[in-house]
Design a protein around this nucleic acid. Sequence first.
DNA 1: CGTGAAAGGTCGAAAAA
DNA 2: TTTTTCGACCTTTCACG
Lengths: 164, 164
Amino acid sequence: MEKKEMIYYRLDEVDEKILAMLQDNARVSLKDIGAEVSMSPTAVGTRIDRMLAEGVLEGFTTKLNPEAMGHYIKAFINLEVSPEQKAEFYPYIDSVLNVVECNCVTGDYSMLIEVRFKTTADLDHFVGELQRFGKTKTQIVFSTNVKHRCRYWKNDLHHDEEKK
Amino acid sequence: MEKKEMIYYRLDEVDEKILAMLQDNARVSLKDIGAEVSMSPTAVGTRIDRMLAEGVLEGFTTKLNPEAMGHYIKAFINLEVSPEQKAEFYPYIDSVLNVVECNCVTGDYSMLIEVRFKTTADLDHFVGELQRFGKTKTQIVFSTNVKHRCRYWKNDLHHDEEKK
DNA sequence: CGTGAAAGGTCGAAAAA
DNA sequence: TTTTTCGACCTTTCACG
């Protein structure tokens, strides 16, 4: 069986350190990273460019605080969409900016939608809108124990110990 | 009724543009942002510092590609944890790096845990571990329609039109 | 991958709006 | 209070080894 399809990018320890620093603060200077990994800023820049080209690293963004911006209500909505309604559903759900994420999942419901709203009234209204696509089940978040981590997992990155 | 408790930070149009540019690429220079908003780099820096101090902006991070790093399986696990087990559950769940997020939610299950694993075997093993805390129901993601958006929503930011 | 020089970006003080 | 200007300093980029 050909396992080549499953191959992904190897990151060495320096790449991991660079990613870790960028995850912590994407605006650190190449010089500071270089000092940490004992390398020139130029070499660090080259590695970052390589990871961007490979697609392991997709870019740099901000950590925003939804609560501070008034988005107090976070909820997950399970939705059962029939196959014939999906063509209409997809563009609709993409247009709603309160949707944080929308996944197709296994189980009784076919969609799991994460949303953010300012008030429960706004959430209720949105859930009402969804009814035209199918049955819903809503779970409202009232506390978050582990906050969204986009991190990579160091111990999962060791593969391909042999070279080609 | 005092509504002061609900007040959050006002962002004007320039702040919104700055945030939008930083969300798109957190490593853009202050000069480039300044050119876009017709302002000096220094003034842009001052606004960013202010948003960081206020907490609206929490920092800068990377957009990583979990698939490229071998994290193919994404799943949501509903878990019913009894109150007396929570003291044990919280530190455990925080220590598992495959956990992307863990929320306390309303409904039949008290926890909704988002995870990433390399294989379904790894996921199965984790779900097995969770059984000691209570009943689980797992939904595996097989496609994502709307990808995680950390963005703020422009139309939600207009409040306090009157000045104090 | 490192070096060094040129180009470009950032920071802080002072002044202007 | 917020923004601009300006100089000093810091960072990035690129050609070359």
